[in-house]
Amino acid sequence: MRALFDERQWLHDPKHFMANGTRLANPEQPRRIEVLKQGAEAAGCRFETPEDHGMGPIAALHSAEYLVFLQTIHERWQRIEGAADEVIPNIHPDRRTASYPRSAVGQAGFHQADTSCPIASGTWEAAYWSAQSAVQGADLIAAGEGGAYVLSRPPGHHAFGDLAGGFCFLNNAAIAAERLMRAGKRPAILDVDVHHGNGTQGIFYERGDVLTVSIHADPVRFYPFFWGHGHERGEGAGRGFNLNLPLVRGTGDDDYLKTLETALDHIRAFGADVLIVALGLDAYEKDPLKGLAVTTPGFSRIGAAIARLSLPTLLVQEGGYLSDELGQNLTGFLTGFQDA
């Protein structure tokens, strides 16, 4: 299987995030690249460097205001007396329609949903090339490739059109879906990350040209809390084109696979001719951000079930944090997918 990755994606090296009022080491570490790359290569992936497709595919979904913020905020932040190296917000508006401030502190609060997406000197460049890798992957699928893997890091599915969050800055899977839609395809996005893809849902929530489906730990007591509930079906033209399938914490392989069949039935009914999988591996039973209990063999079964849709499929990396089995879980998923 062909795979995409750019070395500049190493440049994002977040140090901290806040959880339960405590400052902790950020789990979205650059070393994930090394482990995931080895796991993909063990499944036969051949990595290529993406071309630079420019800002157009990114700006098709992310506002110019937000993109200027991502490109300039770290330099502006350093002018604040006593500021830390990483841009981390400490104040947020009560609504997205609130006035837009001129200050760096205010804009950080407007464009960063939480404290898990710190911005440092290399963040923009890494996020840009993570997105370019997804664009290149979409182009491979549009050109007739049956499947491709994108090692998108930093990940993307918590990023809205003008809002970072949950380790994410640019929504790689959504950018790929938009690219494919503009190439004349009918894309569906299937998110199998343990956390709901709230940014992806938000981007397409009022649209009916892209189906969004997410299987995740029930957000009633789990990040992202405010999105991902079963009653969220889309609005306006998007009514009925968003499907959330929340699972009880600790759900294992068999029940996960049953829920996956429901997701695949909706993708068939939508008439998708191409699939983007937001490939989180953090549903793993030993993942540091514990939510579900999928085993290593379970990931192989999930990959095989998705492959049986027989759709050209772009696999875009999302979560999956450092554990002894992270690379093995990716190898299992990719092997199951390819063998089926």
Rank of each mutant, 00 (worst) to 15 (best):
E75S: 15
H74M: 10
L67D: 06
Y100A: 06
D139G: 14
N90G: 15
Q71D: 09
R95G: 11
V87K: 02
L70M: 13
I119V: 12
W124L: 05
Q132I: 05
G106L: 11
L67K: 09
Y66R: 00
Q107R: 14
D85W: 02
S116R: 06
S116T: 09
I73R: 03
E65S: 12
G109C: 12
W124C: 06
R96K: 11
V87R: 03
E125L: 02
D94F: 14
E75F: 06
W77C: 00
T115L: 08
Y66E: 02
I119C: 03
A104S: 14
A120D: 11
E125K: 00
I141R: 00
I91W: 13
P118N: 04
R96W: 15
Y128T: 03
H111Y: 15
Q136R: 10
E81A: 15
W124K: 00
D85Y: 00
I141W: 00
D94L: 15
G109T: 01
Q132R: 01
F110D: 07
G122F: 02
A113R: 12
W124P: 03
Q78W: 01
E65N: 03
P93T: 11
H111V: 06
E75G: 13
A83W: 01
A138K: 07
E75D: 15
P89Q: 05
A98K: 07
A84Y: 08
V135Y: 03
I119F: 08
V87H: 02
S133V: 01
R76I: 10
A104W: 01
F110W: 10
W77N: 05
P118F: 07
V135I: 13
R76S: 11
R95A: 13
R79L: 12
D85S: 09
A113T: 08
I141E: 06
F69T: 09
R95C: 11
A126F: 00
A113K: 11
P101I: 05
G82H: 09
E86V: 01
A126S: 12
S116D: 07
I80N: 13
N90C: 12
W129H: 04
T97V: 10
A108Y: 07
Y128V: 03
A120I: 00
R96Y: 12
Q136L: 12
P118D: 04
A131D: 08
D85V: 00
V105N: 04
G82I: 05
P118C: 07
S133H: 01
A98L: 02
F110H: 09
L140W: 07
I119R: 02
T123P: 04
H92Y: 10
E65R: 14
W124Y: 13
E86Y: 01
S103T: 14
A127V: 03
